[in-house]
Design a protein around this nucleic acid. Structure first.
Lengths: 327, 327
DNA sequence: TTGTAAGCGTTATCAT
DNA sequence: ATGATAACGCTTACAA
């Protein structure tokens, strides 16, 4: 296969009567070039439609300006908000984000990790999947530490057991407390909590917080009102069906994220149970919260702060490396 | 800044007592290598944690396996569904998708286009923004055609005037007809249509279809029921306010996409107008359609088919190029 | 202020 | 079946 030859700095050099080095200098905004030759070179570039080749550049500079980002599912509004905000920050700093959906599938995660390594990303942001497993598989741990030898991995809202890397998390405990106190203020004393999943790291502490906060307010705990489920709409529906089987019903329902609450609403509608039977609180501040009827009160996870913390941590890590490696 | 040296095929070659060429051969699965040396090399790779450098590879092969994807906003469920599906297909074919949000901002689009050029993506999928403008700016056209000289751009559901590139689109005319017929079947005769934007390519034909289909069914057109608005929730709210000002109200509301309908619902709720006052139809088959109360009937845009068509077109283009360039 | 040339980590052509 | 070696397109000492 014969490929049309790219315009290179050599071509530009020739047509501008300078050396390739000089062309490269204007490319890198090196101030040493005389303004007139600089303009000349720039003109030739425009004429010929020259675009620098990022692969070549990365190869010599040993730096790709790439950040890898693995998350379960970008169609989940919480993730998309976080991602967009992070992409915006990255753009400001001159970085390009590589997004990959894992669908919480360990094998897909592995594929993405490998690809990120080969593309020499300078950092990996990891959300969901294996980093939330209380008991990750040996293979998963090995993969992670292998990759981490090359490139820092920032785990968001998760911590793999037996793996110490970088972490960023939202204040989940604080969020749960805030949600419960909000409901108490509304006069609720019967509060259900749907949608954590056993075997996921943060689960235990969140459920513990739920119970502790209730106790602190002299409210007795009804075990049947704390129901595990998947993090999605289907999970919310299933949990609702379980909840409805209990002899006594709560007056308020907390969902582990908004999707779970949507599931609740959907199930209630399908069973012709009035939505107003309960009050609802979700945990992600996603744009839908505004839409569903009745409006959800959600505790603001604040993806902006989250994204910013991820970026800050990345820059700290990078700076640390640079300092360590100064000649 | 001193960087820890990467393990290269030279290192592997040395430790395996072969030449770098041989190492490269096992990397490319060249069948000419003896099985025993092949295993030897593979072992050494594992031991040393070797990962091939994609930049170097791209440089020599003049091929990056990268596809750029520009869309307005990945937090819009329609786009995220399309993207996920496309990413899945791309992964199957060994391609990596570079996602960029443009926020419909022309300058951001330009940044992404430039970056895609530098990264030598092999195709660009373009949704939203400038490709929907009935009257694109000269600068935008120039940018596009400059980029198109290097790499094919596939414009999805849009067609820039004065620009002939590759196009893929959903059957919007058919969708509108289907929606209206659905409403007619339900007995509606008073049908509003909210949410197209003047100056966007597909608008005219879609509105024409709306009118034509009504006429075909002997329904007179009420101009006040056809309201332009932005494609988002706010647009839907605004259009609703306008709609409510007309002396006569429709019984059904069609929205140009689901977000517009959400906006309608929200505005009605805020004005304490019963949701059941109207029936609703949106145009994107996004996962929320299921959730909102009352359920929306949406015309299936079928993002799976759309993604597949994008991928097919890309492969056709690629194949065409290869044929043209065979030695 | 500019040029020369080595090097970045691969692949691919030619020999052997 | 394997090895030498020239690309690929850029950056960056080092010289001039």
């Amino acid at each position: 296969m014969i490929v049309k030859k790219d315009v290179t700095i050599y071509d530009i050099a020739k047509s501008a009567n300078v050396s390739p080095a000089t062309v490269s200098r204007v490319l890198t905004s090196n101030p040493l070039v005389k303004e007139s030759t600089r303009q000349m070179v720039l003109d030739k570039m425009r004429e010929s439609g020259f675009t620098p080749n990022e692969s070549a550049r990365s190869l010599t500079k040993k730096q790709t300006n790439l950040i890898g980002f693995i998350l379960p599912d970008i169609s989940n509004p919480f993730f998309s908000q976080v991602f967009i905000e992070f992409e915006r920050l990255a753009l400001e700093k001159g970085f390009t984000v590589l997004l990959r959906n894992s669908m919480d599938n360990s094998e897909i995660e592995a594929i993405h990790l490998r690809e990120f390594s080969e593309r020499r990303v300078e950092c990996i942001i990891f959300m969901g999947g294996r980093i939330n497993k209380a008991k990750p598989e040996k293979k998963e741990l090995e993969e992670m530490s292998t990759v981490m030898k090359r490139v820092p991995i920032i785990m968001v809202n998760g911590k793999m057991k037996g793996m110490n890397g970088y972490n960023v998390r939202t204040d989940e405990v604080g969020g749960i407390e805030a949600a419960i106190e909000y409901l108490l203020a509304l006069g609720h004393r019967k509060i259900a909590y749907l949608g954590e999943k056993k075997g996921v790291t943060a689960t235990d502490i969140k459920i513990a917080t739920y119970k502790k906060t209730l106790k602190k307010n002299q409210i007795s705990i009804v075990p049947k009102w704390q129901i595990y489920s998947d993090f999605n709409i289907e999970g919310g529906r299933k949990a609702t069906r379980t909840l409805l089987e209990s002899d006594q019903l709560p007056t308020a329902i907390m969902g582990m994220n908004d999707l779970v609450i949507y599931g609740v609403l959907k199930e209630l509608r399908m069973q012709n149970i009035p939505i107003r039977t309960f009050s609802y609180v979700g945990f992600d501040d996603i744009f839908l919260s505004d839409i569903v009827y009745p409006s959800l009160t959600t505790v603001n996870h604040n993806y902006q702060i989250l994204s910013m913390e991820m970026m800050n941590l990345f820059e700290m890590i990078k700076k640390g490396k640079e300092i360590k490696r100064v000649k």
